[in-house]
Nucleic acid binder design. Structure first.
Lengths: 259, 259
DNA sequence: GACTATTTTTACGATTATCGTAAATGAATT
DNA sequence: AATTCATTTACGATAATCGTAAAAATAGTC
């Protein structure tokens, strides 16, 4: 009965971290059952993990309502994680400089576990803004997502294309695999991907992959604007060269750490 | 052999969280052995937990040096934890208002797991400042620590006094249990604890416990200054009433969440 | 470049922590 | 009081983690 635990991977830890991740500004309080449902875990395990967090001070439970909230230790850990993550600092200055100099909103993402993670975002003053999750595994409706897809090898790209939900967000959203494939081909020719109101009406963007020393896409930089300020072709003409240059610089800074 | 796992407490999760907590601004990179030593864990367990974090994107490993650093997911979680922890907002305004109005530096701590955790700190402009860890389990050399100790019941207080390291920090640091006991008695009479350069030369402070609805100390508020600006007795005369009032207000805001 | 010391990774049996059912307790509503 | 829903506890079966030990990779020395 040599049922070897096939991997060096601690599932209990994974589940615990998933629980912590549920809490943020817009979801500061959870019930135990809501957590169990969301993570897909039975009540006993949920109880044990939640209880562990409570005893450690990462969660607090309202004695009456049983609502769970982040505890003080969570704030401490949050501090550490943010200040200890130092790609941030390396990259931030460069991005801020470009944003200030050329009056353009810039976003920088890392690509990890088939997921785009927003690392830094600098907006120009006095412009419309929009909310976006810091993490997204949907790649078909953003310039950055398409930039990364366009730089993957064929096999990986097809794998990810298959997993896109292709939900319609605006009248311009790409809603099928073939259209996406065409769009990605065009991005490869150009050297950058574009977004023409596919995510939010009026929001336009150009994005290019950041390539590791090993030749793989490890992230993306993105310039965003609105059709109130620019037409898409203006944005392309004026800034696409700058975008590529910035991507190369960022690759130089982090290209071997995230190879 | 009913060796019941005595508690609903996930040790694996605890260890994992301890690992994450090692990383911060001043310690951004760790080797696996250093982690194992620091936590007091065998290599295999360390390897499994670290590997779990790597696969989840919370840590990255330099392929050459094997140095471990926080990964992008850590930054995302850090964001969530900080923004999702909302005692912060409840309390911050009150503290900022007092600090601005009376031109005094204010610190607020929660007391959890025998540990003081800095929740908020507002300094007056143009004054000397100092660095302090966000978490401390040493209570004998700060006004806030002594404030909390003074409000504990006798048994708990003795327990904690026994665990103080009594390291000498300045010529005024309290270095033995009996002196501390006398100091705490005085604090109880006064209603607040004082710090007269016991931590840093020239740094003075008064602090008072924040008491939960259940009557237990759940934190402390502290006014700090330097002997360049005030003498300690001036600080006491001018501000001790304000300090107590603030502590009561804060207790009203959070007194039942952290009961 | 061979040798040693150190660190990381893998293998696997022994141990024990976690899972998950089920029942008990508690809180809220009618 | 009865019903419902959520949380907490008990406990046996299961599967994950521990921890020794050996292999592999890396760094340091001569």
């Amino acid at each position: 009965m040599t049922k070897r635990s096939n991997d060096y991977f601690a599932k209990t830890l994974e589940k615990g971290i998933k629980i912590l991740n549920l809490f943020d500004e817009s979801n500061p309080a959870w019930s135990q059952t809501a957590i169990a449902e969301k993570i897909g875990m039975n009540m006993t395990s949920t109880y044990r993990l939640v209880n562990t967090f409570i005893e450690m001070g990462y969660l607090t439970k309202d004695p009456k309502t049983k609502q769970l909230r982040l505890g003080p230790m969570a704030a401490v850990l949050g501090n550490k994680l943010l200040s200890g993550f130092d790609v941030h600092e390396l990259v931030r200055d460069k991005i801020d400089a470009v944003s200030a100099r050329y009056q353009i909103s810039v976003e920088f993402y890392l690509f990890q576990n088939d997921t785009l993670i927003q690392i830094h975002k600098r907006e120009t003053l006095n412009t419309l803004t929009y909310h976006q999750d810091l993490i997204s595994s949907s790649l078909y409706y953003t310039a950055s997502g398409k930039a990364v897809l366009s730089a993957l090898d064929d096999e990986r790209r097809e794998e990810l294309i298959k997993n896109q939900p292709f939900t319609t967000l605006t009248e311009k959203t790409i809603t099928d695999a073939d259209s996406l494939r065409r769009d990605l081909k065009a991005a490869q020719r150009r050297g950058y991907a574009i977004n023409d109101g596919e995510y939010i009406k009026g929001l336009i963007a150009i994005a290019t992959p950041v390539i590791s020393t090993g030749g793989k896409p490890i992230g993306a930089v993105c310039f965003t604007s609105t059709t109130l300020n620019f037409e898409l072709d203006e944005l392309e003409k004026q800034h696409s060269a700058l975008l590529s240059a910035l991507a190369k610089e960022l690759a130089g800074l982090i290209g071997q750490r995230y190879s």
